[in-house]
């Protein structure tokens, strides 16, 4: 009885998951392979003429290689902001977890506030302009760091709590200075959570649409998510190119997913058990 029921459940689950979660991606791939005319039908038909490669070349070269610039911009943005995030968040998490001071309450409050409060957009633009950082890639990098610090700090603090304080003290006895303790003892031990942090924040920042939209306007400044948005208005009828673009920008997260699924899940579920 229960054997039959289990198989029945499995079959239904697999079918439903296929329809709900897989078919939309198949649709993306199929449309990306079609020509302009057939893609405009928006239907679920088999491509009459496979021209994925032509579409890719088209998308990349269009508007003066905009997509290539965008990939470069997005890569710089992601790598730079994640690097800063890792170092700065680990430093805060370390001292915050190790040292009990009267500031800790305020800092914890600010971390929660950062997770909850939506950024004040126009005042930020006003400030960035005053500092000459508006519509500049390094300005956006600092913005991404500011917005994602709270989550990274929480990850690090939770993990540092599992590293015994004895290790710091043994290192001090061995003659380590504060920077030695942090960079030679703590940072290497943080490696697992650093991988998680890198992966989760990379995906988030690579996929970020809103912040580049507000803070990095202007030609040549596009990030990959914005190219999609631009194509959407520009190629109202060129669905094959639009979906080729979607396909291309889905590849980096897919690669990350294939190699780092475990770390991502560890990152996003941190805190789920304790609340």
């Amino acid at each position: 009885m229960s054997l039959i029921r289990r198989h029945w459940l499995s079959v239904v689950a697999i079918l439903v998951s296929f329809v709900v979660f897989v078919i939309p991606f198949i649709f993306i791939v199929l449309t990306a392979m079609k020509d302009k005319r057939q893609s405009a039908l928006l239907d679920f038909s088999w491509p009459e003429k496979f021209q994925l490669w032509e579409n890719i070349v088209d998308v990349i070269t269009t508007r003066n290689w905009q997509l290539l610039t965008a990939f470069i911009n997005s890569t710089i943005l992601t790598v730079a902001s994640v690097t800063l995030l890792v170092v700065f968040a680990a430093m805060v998490g370390f001292v915050l977890q190790r040292r009990r001071t009267r500031w800790n309450g305020l800092i914890n409050f600010l971390i929660l506030a950062g997770l909850m409060i939506p950024p004040a957009i126009v005042p930020t633009i006003w400030l960035l302009q005053a500092m000459g950082l508006f519509a500049k890639l390094h300005g956006l990098i600092l913005i991404e760091v500011a917005y994602h610090l709270p989550f990274s700090i929480l990850l690090y603090r939770a993990f540092i709590a599992t590293i015994p304080k004895d290790l710091d003290e043994a290192a001090i006895i061995d003659g380590a200075r504060p920077l030695d303790v942090f960079f030679r003892i703590i940072m290497p031990l943080l490696w697992p959570v650093t991988v998680t942090n890198i992966v989760v924040q990379s995906v988030t920042i690579f996929n970020d649409f809103t912040n580049p939209l507000y803070y990095l306007p202007g030609r040549g400044n596009e990030t990959v998510q914005l190219t999609l948005y631009n194509f959407q208005s520009q190629f109202n009828t060129s669905y094959h190119l639009l979906f080729t673009n979607i396909l291309l920008i889905t590849i980096p997260p897919l690669i990350v997913f294939l190699f780092f699924n475990r770390q991502i899940v560890a990152g996003v579920t941190a805190g789920a058990v304790k609340g």
Binding site: D166, E169, A170, A176, I185
Partner: peptide
């Protein structure tokens, strides 16, 4: 501490987990 001419053995041992025995010995 490093200038006091002391060395300390901890109850938990506090060995550096990411270093070999050789590196643990030689860290100081």
């Amino acid at each position: 501490p490093r200038d006091r001419g002391i060395a300390m053995v901890f109850q938990s041992y506090a060995l550096y987990p990411h270093m070999t025995v050789y590196e643990n010995f030689g860290f100081g």
